[in-house]
Design a protein around this nucleic acid. Structure first.
Lengths: 330, 330
DNA sequence: CTGTTAGCGCCTTCAC
DNA sequence: GTGAAGGCGCTAACAG
């Protein structure tokens, strides 16, 4: 591969001149620029971005860490990230944290391969993040609570969302409300559960641990958890699934046993994923402002990069989406 | 940030020794290794990946170019890419080609920031790809036909898939079959259309251009195209949508006009996206072996990287998935 | 306006 | 087993 040296030589100028010409620094006469460009073309020269990054000690790109590139994840959120990033003339790469310490995400987090990072990958540990973040290397976390310098936190109000969901069920006349949880180490899940608990409390319904069954946010786990619920003989009047995927798994389990939703049992999810309105019955759920969360995250990164001071913590509101999976018994 | 120089100094050894120690090259006494590691830890040293890549002239990562990171795209395909990449100890980054010449995808394609590239982004031009590919920089295209050195092509048999879909409609007794196309510049679309034409021909049904309406693969365009079809008064017996998204848009348009699917009109899609089995009625469609395509693509990259010689072109078979959107009138 | 030169941080011969 | 030194390809002072 041709280097800038080759170009300079062929154009009969010094490397610096070639560099200036190629990068549009206006110190070079038009004639020289033309000569250099011609030479570059002849040699099919392409700059080595790595060398350039090394020299400039910045990459102009930010990374989005996802727990799994193949989703299903929040496409609205990514859209927000993408749009704001490119609007600021930066590049965006997405990488996955599958593989733990060996993963691409961790490598990018540690090795200064990007100028900033947005984390949406619960399997990256807090300490990993805290160690990586530093001045001039901001990281924004979207999936956890984390107090540390140089790390910002934007989250949607999962607690309030959990409260809204539960309250809605209660307002519709349900008292025995099961909660199918996400993984124990999920911050989102814990907040949603807190919201559930506090709604019960506020309406003087005593919490019963038999109504809490654990899942892990996958459709499969929602299916299994629901089967267990059904096996317990005494069905609750309603069930609150900590996310939509699990609710869809639950829908399937109920269907297999001939239990009608919402006639025999009401269900509500969380997230408002695209599928939610297509399943049958359409799923009532809690929507998160995902686009805004993504856009805000990038926005904050740029503010930190320009050393503006910003708040450390942001909390975005959730919203109830009424569809047809909850029956009104009130 | 601490550099390897700082580590060496603190450990009281030469830089080279520190490098060896840190990279596990067994030339260094255990005692020295310990000293170096201690120093690195004290300084919170992290290697600069960019510098390391520059020196080694390879990055150990491959890039996946998508036309839009926020999807909707083929998660199965990405899974295939992801798994094979990490199984080979390489890293994977995804980037988008939104923004054309300015996009991250183009930058990575040109600037040798990765060791190989997989393209699934129709808006990247052929010439861009041809210019970028070279020895030791393999690129695999999954979305087009392209003959050139150092670029490989794996595609699913869209033509045959189009044929299968159309033939299935014909076997079910339909004669007037509309085709809602994807964008004209889409290779996939053109192949599917060819399959449609050849099935008609084989069964002696004359092609009528009034049955071809153009869309652009979006749900919205399928909706609009279907509205136009309906406005033409004379409805076809069946319609073949060049992809599932458009078919879903069509479903909505038919529903709004009270036209029952499949009783009044049969429809078939292409892709077998996840939603396909959830819409109502469940969509009959053509499935592509997406996981295999992704896995194969990466596999080929590694073969090229190790200078093995491989075929230039791969064609994967498609399969008809029968659900309930086609009525048997035969 | 153009050329010389010194690194960016790391790896890796090559001597010792 | 350890150290000195030369780049990888590029940018950006600094001189001229």
């Amino acid at each position: 591969m041709a280097t800038i040296k080759d170009v300079a030589k062929r154009a009969g100028v010094a490397v610096s001149t070639a560099s200036y010409a190629l990068n549009g620094v206006k110190k070079v006469s038009p004639a020289t620029v033309a000569k250099v460009q011609k030479a570059a073309e002849d040699l099919n020269y392409q700059k080595n971005g790595i060398a350039s990054d090394l020299k400039r000690t910045q990459t102009n790109t930010i990374a989005l860490m996802l727990s799994d590139l193949s989703g299903p994840y929040y496409s609205e959120l990514i859209k927000g990230v993408q749009e704001v990033t490119s609007a600021n003339g930066y590049d965006l790469v997405a990488c996955s944290s599958i593989g733990g310490e060996q993963s691409t995400a961790i490598k990018f987090l540690k090795e200064k391969r990007v100028d900033g990072v947005i984390v949406l990958a619960h399997n990256i540990s807090d300490s990993m993040i805290v160690n990586a973040a530093r001045e001039n290397f901001p990281v924004v976390v979207l999936d956890r609570e984390l107090e540390s310098d140089h790390v910002l936190q934007v989250e949607v109000d999962n607690r309030h969302g959990g409260f809204l969901a539960t309250e809605y069920l209660i307002h519709n006349g349900h008292q025995n409300i099961a909660y199918i949880s996400g993984p124990y180490n999920s911050h989102d899940n814990n907040k949603r559960f807190q919201g559930y608990r506090s709604a019960l409390e506020q309406y003087n319904i005593t919490y019963q641990s038999k109504w809490k069954i654990s899942g892990d946010f996958t459709r499969e786990s929602g299916y299994r958890a629901t089967k267990m619920l059904i096996a317990q003989h005494h069905l609750p009047e309603a069930v609150f699934y900590a996310n939509d995927e699990m609710a869809i798994g639950g829908l399937q389990a109920f269907a297999e046993k001939g239990i009608a939703v919402p006639e025999n049992v009401s269900i509500i999810g969380f997230d408002d994923i695209q599928l939610a309105e297509y399943v049958s019955p359409p799923l009532t759920t809690i929507r998160q402002p995902k686009y805004e969360a993504g856009a805000l995250a990038v926005h904050l990164i740029f503010q930190l990069l320009t050393s503006e001071s910003v708040d450390r913590h942001y909390n975005l509101a959730t919203e109830l989406i009424e569809r047809q999976s909850v029956q009104n018994n009130a």
